[in-house]
């Protein structure tokens, strides 16, 4: 499968939104003081699990206090 046959116009929004989610999560991780559990673990989770990682971070990792 060569690169030109991939319909980039359709796939691109998905990639952009995933990237945005990761960026938002990383910025938030950088700004907050404390998280539930070590920060480097959350950084790994955010970057390695593309869709679910940032969501899990926002729901579980963030201390809303």
């Amino acid at each position: 499968m060569d690169l030109n046959s991939i319909p980039w116009m359709l796939i691109l929004p998905v990639l952009i939104i995933q990237l945005l989610l990761i960026i938002v999560a990383v910025i938030d991780l950088y700004r907050v003081k404390y998280t539930n559990g070590p920060k480097w673990m959350w950084a790994l989770i955010i970057i390695c699990f593309s869709i679910i990682g940032p969501v899990i971070y926002f729901i579980v990792g963030r201390r809303n206090e």
């Binding site: 796939i11 989610l21 999560a25 938030d28 869709i51 940032p54 969501v55 926002f58």
Partner: peptide, 30 residues
């Protein structure tokens, strides 16, 4: 707390990826 940003993004992501996965399922499997 960025909820205003990430909740719409997640919903859009699932909204987009569903038709795409179904449409390209044969290619993905290949």
């Amino acid at each position: 707390n960025f909820k205003i940003l990430w909740i719409p993004l997640v919903f859009i992501l699932f909204g987009i990826s569903e038709p795409l996965t179904y449409y390209y399922l044969p290619q993905i499997l290949n």
